[in-house]
Nucleic acid binder design. Structure first.
Lengths: 330, 330
DNA sequence: CTGTTAGCGCTTTCAG
DNA sequence: CTGAAAGCGCTAACAG
């Protein structure tokens, strides 16, 4: 009810209020609070301003500063199509990016979903980031909308996606597997990404001198997934290894194998992608593949800071290497 | 390089530009674009303005509108302590809330992590939401910082948390289980929440006339989790059901049981909380408990819209009921 | 060293 | 029906 300061109707404290309270002019307040090095303010005056500001709880009003020409500290992240925020990889990168940009004095905010971009105008970001890949037309549209630099948060996404599939194949080959399949997710919106990974798996298989992995779809429903896996093994009895599109698909494959009495890894080895935190908890524990994005995130945050400062620059690419995280399923 | 509109240095298009292009005054532009009903603008003039605006790609500049006194359409979500955005339940509620607020013309943006709240000033939100519960002192601080209404996004959180534990106990009792344990997560920051659920489980057990569930911790490490589960069963041999703090802990319990040769549900039944999408994929598929938050989200979005409009109001509470989602593990 | 002032882009009276 | 002008809160150039 009456929690301190919770009154929504309370007038905002302005720099005029601080000036009056401190008995100086608004310019002096601005000089002190912004530490203008070209002015030398006596310590007593400075202190008076600081005290008055603290006493009143003064916070400069963002819109006014921005209107005056200050550089915004807001970085807006837009992820059209990523309808659920708990997507593990994307959310992980976005989370770390938020922390990393803060070191540059920037505040990353994430507008979830984000269709209807038109009206998000009073955000006034310094930079807009998006989950769509580099060449997407949306980038141009956004740039026009916001009149600020727009960049893909996932530069060189294809190579990044491909790297994990290659690493999967290499790991399975190193484990002695020769006849592989590629387990694709059923959700149609992931089809394009799955194709990128499948192609990379094919290329890695060719390089290793083994047959190209056959692609099959893993339905969302557990019983249907079991049927799909059994059908796949009947059609390709010599199959001994499965590259799953990601850990989530791999979980379904493991469940399907367990339901069908197919021993993993004795009959088939299974490997996922992403190193999901639940991977260690499956039966058997899921082998997977991981890319180290820490270095990328740090570099990309610096790149965002450059964009925010008005400097054009090439973004650092996502890592194009992945390494296996071997567990019991291979 | 030269994607259309990607030039960061390009000057913003202002309402003056549109007025000049259309050959009218800035006031007329404003009238037309804001559909001011008190003015009657001839259709030809109106069309000239609309055309000029479209041709130039004009977008009114948010900060200037806000400075003029317009109501912000931004709702800022702050989640201190929620360090990883892929937390399933919170992310789910936040995602749906973003969609629901959009129906009220509001744009929810999520500042991840969000320590150092001081400098996020040029956001100018209409409302600030936070993940901390109702009485938290942070609410007052934020209200002072932003001079706008601040509310917890999870009103009456305790009852919400408790409901799921009660539903777990009731489900297990209905399945004929009598000697229960409460499996708590090892992460200390979840301890308080775990205590709320454990107490609710105790209360439900008392109401059902069975012994109070004993609390034990499930370590993150799989081998350690197995040891903990075996120790628990040795100490309480008559144990026949486990309420896990959430599905994630339940996954660990299932893995521990599998590793230790403890049949689920024959020897012990296991039930989680949250209806995590991977629950159907465990071995055996995990029974869980779910609260229907759709109605809450819709009502809460309306409440946020009220706050944004400057009307004080009581928030709708989170649901205080949960229902079981029975699967193979119970 | 401090105060006055112009002006960012927008909406909205108030005159014409 | 259209145009001129004020003012939101802030910063920075310019006087004093």
């Amino acid at each position: 009810m009456s929690s301190p300061g919770a009154d929504p109707a309370r007038r905002r404290v302005t720099s005029t209020d601080v000036a009056r309270e401190a008995g100086v002019s608004r310019a002096t307040v601005s000089y002190v609070l912004n530490r203008d090095s070209r002015q030398s303010i006596p310590d007593v005056t400075r202190q008076k301003v600081l005290d008055a500001s603290a006493r009143l709880g003064y916070r400069p009003y963002g819109p006014a500063r921005l209107l005056r020409g200050a550089r915004s500290s807001v970085v807006l992240m837009l992820t059209p199509g990523l309808e659920h925020a708990s997507d593990f990889v994307a959310a992980g990168i976005i989370t770390s990016l938020g922390a990393a940009t803060r070191h540059h004095g920037l505040h990353l905010v994430w507008q979830l979903g984000a269709e209807e971009l038109e009206t998000a105008i009073d955000l006034a970001p310094a930079v807009v980031l998006t989950s769509v890949p580099d060449g997407d037309p949306l980038i141009g549209e956004l740039s026009e909308q916001f009149s600020v630099p727009v960049a893909s948060a996932f530069p060189h996404l294809d190579a990044f996606l491909a790297a994990s599939a290659s690493a999967q194949v290499e790991h399975l080959v190193a484990r002695g597997r020769r006849r592989l399949a590629f387990a694709a997710p059923a959700r149609p919106e992931l089809g394009a990404t799955a194709t990128i990974r499948h192609r990379a798996a094919n290329a890695a298989a060719a390089a290793a001198g083994i047959p190209l992995p056959h692609r099959f779809e893993v339905p969302d429903d557990r019983a249907a997934a079991g049927a799909a896996l059994r059908a796949e093994l009947e059609a390709h009895p010599e199959l001994d290894g499965i590259c799953a599109f990601n850990d989530e698909v791999a979980f379904a494959v493991l469940a399907a194998a367990a339901d069908s009495g197919i021993p993993v890894p004795a009959r088939i080895a299974v490997i996922g992608v992403d190193n999901h935190p639940f991977g260690p908890l499956t039966c058997p524990a899921l082998s997977t593949v991981e890319s180290d994005v820490d270095a990328f995130v740090t570099q990309f945050a610096a790149h965002v800071a450059q964009l925010a400062a008005g400097e054009a620059a090439e973004p650092p690419p996502l890592p194009d290497q992945a390494h296996a995280v071997p567990r019991a399923s291979t």
